[in-house]
């Protein structure tokens, strides 16, 4: 029972209190880049969630069975980024062949994910916190869900901000960042939320 509680705790904190984008700042580039429309934001969020869960599983295995036994933990960064890049490649090829409908929806986002800090970030955090296999996968998937939540909320906010009349030097990126700041302020309300 304690174990299930710890999994639920990881889930909730990764989605809300330690939200990957708004609290930890992993994956700001896609957050700013692909949040112009709700549909694309949702697609990106789903692709990231999928890859993050897979990458957490794979990097856990690589770390536990390859790097630790051979004393190669200093090669973590290099090994993880290679694993993530190959996962993204494999997922892309697999989706293209077997689930073309899903590939149509997510395809264009996949290459972007390799250089998404959230994916490498979650792999490194899993190792740092000493999570076991299941905890790592839950953390990865929940981190992805938190990413999706933030990016979808932000996309709907941004569609309205783009129509607003703002001073000239604030047009474009600055006003978007300030809107993101206000969203982050709302997420600060979750800090201190401890369920288990």
């Amino acid at each position: 029972m304690d174990y299930i509680n710890s999994l639920l705790g990881i889930l909730l904190s990764a989605v809300l209190t330690e939200n990957f984008i708004l609290v930890k700042f992993y994956g700001i580039c896609p957050f700013m880049g692909v949040s112009k429309k709700i549909d694309t934001a949702l697609g990106m969020g789903m692709a990231v969630t999928f890859v993050m869960a897979l990458a957490s599983a794979a990097t856990w295995a690589v770390n536990a069975f390859l790097l630790v036994p051979f004393g190669l933990t200093y090669m973590q960064t290099v090994a993880f980024i290679l694993v993530i890049a190959s996962i993204v490649q494999v997922v892309e090829m697999f989706l293209k062949k077997s689930v073309p409908a899903l590939y149509q929806a997510l395809g264009i986002f996949l290459p972007l994910i390799t250089t998404n800090c959230a994916v490498l970030g979650v792999a490194l955090v899993n190792v740092q916190k000493g999570y076991d296999f299941l905890q790592s996968v839950v953390n990865g998937a929940a981190g992805g869900l938190g990413f999706t939540l933030a990016i979808v909320l932000f996309a709907s906010l941004r569609q309205r901000v783009d129509k607003a009349d703002v001073p000239k030097c604030f047009q474009g990126f600055p006003i978007t960042l300030i809107a993101a700041g206000l969203l982050a302020l709302a997420f600060m309300g979750f800090s201190g939320l401890k369920v288990f």
Binding site: C169, F170, F173, P174, L177, A184, F187, M188
Partner: peptide, 25 residues
Amino acid sequence: MMMVMPVGGFLTLGFVIAGSQWLMA
């Protein structure tokens, strides 16, 4: 405290970029 929290990061960067756009214009 807000300014060293995540919120401050977004707000400050927004203002810094706005400042640099103004300077360049």
